Amino acid sequence: MVLASTDPPEVQLAMNRTWHLPFRWISDPGGVRLAKPLDAWNPDRGGIFKPLVVAVAPDGREVFRELSRDFTDRPDDEPVLAALESLGLEPVAIPPWAPDVEPQPSERAFQPASFIPYFRAIKFNTGALSERMVDERDRDQLLTEQGMAESFLAAFDEWRAEHPPDRR
């Protein structure tokens, strides 16, 4: 797995260390190398990536692609994992990412302490709003967002159990 961002490598390294991410990052300031060619550039949000998941087979074929509308719209794990498992590949161990830069946290970075209140608010607000919707499509969209927030909260509970806060 490789993540891409318009942030410079030192900001990406700080994010990796904050969230204990085992992934490598590609830095694409300006979106020239990846975001724009993949149709994932979002100039309306300050020049950032739209969330995009692409799974590529060793021969270069795309076996999965989902371009989200915005940061609240993400694919479920199951279709992505099914596409990857269909390739029948063995997992590859990748050494930890150790770029030649010092971590430099960004003020925009989502911090673990903000995670629970943010997604709890989404969960409860979407639930309340879905009760007001008369259009079934709007209600379904809100309930999908609510389910995503619940999924993120459950995953964060697992993450917290694996990465307890440093209480020094």
Results as ranks from 00 to 15, higher is better:
L38Y: 09
L21V: 10
D59E: 06
N125V: 11
P105M: 07
I94K: 08
L89I: 06
P37L: 15
D73R: 01
P164N: 09
P37Q: 14
R120E: 13
F49N: 08
P91K: 04
A40Y: 08
A109T: 11
D140T: 14
L143Y: 02
S5G: 06
E85Q: 15
V80I: 05
D73H: 07
A14Y: 06
T144M: 07
P96S: 03
W19G: 13
P112K: 07
L13A: 10
F152I: 08
L52M: 00
S68C: 09
P91W: 02
P79G: 13
D138E: 15
D59S: 05
F71R: 11
D166W: 01
P95C: 07
G88N: 07
L143Q: 05
P79R: 02
N125C: 01
S86G: 11
V32H: 12
E10G: 02
G46M: 05
R69L: 09
R17F: 00
D77Y: 05
R139L: 00
D77K: 05
A161T: 08
L34W: 02
T126R: 06
A14F: 07
G47F: 12
S86M: 09
A83H: 02
P112Q: 13
P29K: 10
A161S: 14
R33K: 15
M133Y: 02
L84N: 03
A109Y: 07
E150I: 04
R24Y: 11
D28W: 00
S151F: 04
R61C: 03
P91D: 09
P22Y: 12
E136V: 12
T18V: 10
G147M: 07
G46L: 10
E102F: 00
